[in-house]
């Protein structure tokens, strides 16, 4: 049960071709109100691929995701040590500027949260706050991103309608488009399909697979089948520690650790 040995095991696994990892986590510890939620996390997340974080509920996987874009800052009584490097830049450096960091990472939350405004304004919101005023440019961005998520044909006639009128699956795709519009480099998904019907889930999954050519994608999920369907790499987190990290098939089919094995077989959840 030694943490360090596990991490070493994780690191020595064959991860294929990682040139310069987009996201690197070094000695990360997160404590919330005195309780250690994440313990000595060391991790390099591969570029242009989908990495899924799996693990039983309460194991710290959502916290890990929120540490990546510093949303964890908003939690009461939180203490963070260690560093998270994105393109070599430390997010937790003292002079790091949070809004700039967050802009690089699109978040797709559990349930879709359209902003209380029209479909057009939802997508245009991000570019607008970051200074884009030109109407034609904005219209272009909106169209491109809505096409990207396959929503354009469904909504092009009612861009001024309130975003809350869309179906929940459409809303989630709108939220993805809204996130993409600020030109992130990384997409973070927090159980992004848990509120969706099977058809919408499949649409989102396919979208993510298409998007990985241009983005680094990190997903939190508790559905093993989903992890197998979409991801290239899997991180198994248990009790705030990374137990195993490797290619999807390696982790799911030939887990190296007993706990992983039990989880994959459904003995713990």
């Amino acid at each position: 049960m030694h943490t360090s040995s596990r991490i070493q095991a994780a690191e020595t696994q064959d991860l294929g071709n990682i040139s310069v990892p987009h996201i690197q986590i070094k000695n990360l510890n997160v404590t919330i109100e005195g309780k250690r939620i994440l313990k000595d996390i060391n991790l390099s997340i591969p570029n242009n691929s989908i990495t899924s974080i799996i693990g039983p509920s309460g194991c710290g996987k959502t916290t890990l995701l929120k540490t990546l874009n510093r949303l964890v800052d908003d939690t009461k009584g939180v203490e963070i040590t260690g560093s998270v490097l994105v393109n070599g830049e430390d997010l937790y450096a003292k002079d790091a500027e949070v809004t700039h960091i967050r802009k690089k990472m699109g978040l797709l939350s559990q349930k879709p949260f359209p902003l209380p405004m029209s479909i057009f304004d939802n997508v245009a919101y991000g570019p607008r706050i970051h200074g884009e005023k030109n109407k034609q440019v904005l219209a272009q961005i909106v169209e491109t991103q809505l096409r990207n998520v396959g929503l354009w044909d469904e909504v092009k006639d009612r861009l001024d309608a309130s975003a809350t009128r869309l179906s929940i699956g459409q809303q989630q795709r709108l939220c993805l488009a809204r996130g993409l519009a600020v030109k992130p480099e990384i997409i973070l998904g927090d159980e992004s399909t848990s509120a969706l019907d099977p058809v919408s889930t499949q649409t989102i999954e396919n979208l993510l697979i298409e998007l990985k050519q241009d983005y680094t994608i990190v997903l939190v999920t508790h559905i093993l089948r989903q992890a197998r369907r979409v991801s290239d790499y899997i991180i198994f987190v248990y009790n705030g520690e990374i137990i195993e990290f490797g290619k999807t098939d390696d982790v799911l089919l030939h887990p190296k650790h007993e706990i992983t094995q039990q989880y994959v077989k459904g003995f713990i959840s």
Partner: peptide, 27 residues
């Protein structure tokens, strides 16, 4: 919902820009 706050933050908003969204929500 707290996620609305987080979703706007993750677009790179400042707190004031998030506050404006919240105001809109409760108008």
């Amino acid at each position: 919902p707290i996620d609305l706050k987080h979703v706007t933050f993750s677009l790179g908003t400042t707190r004031w820009e998030t506050a404006k969204i919240c105001l809109k929500y409760i108008k």
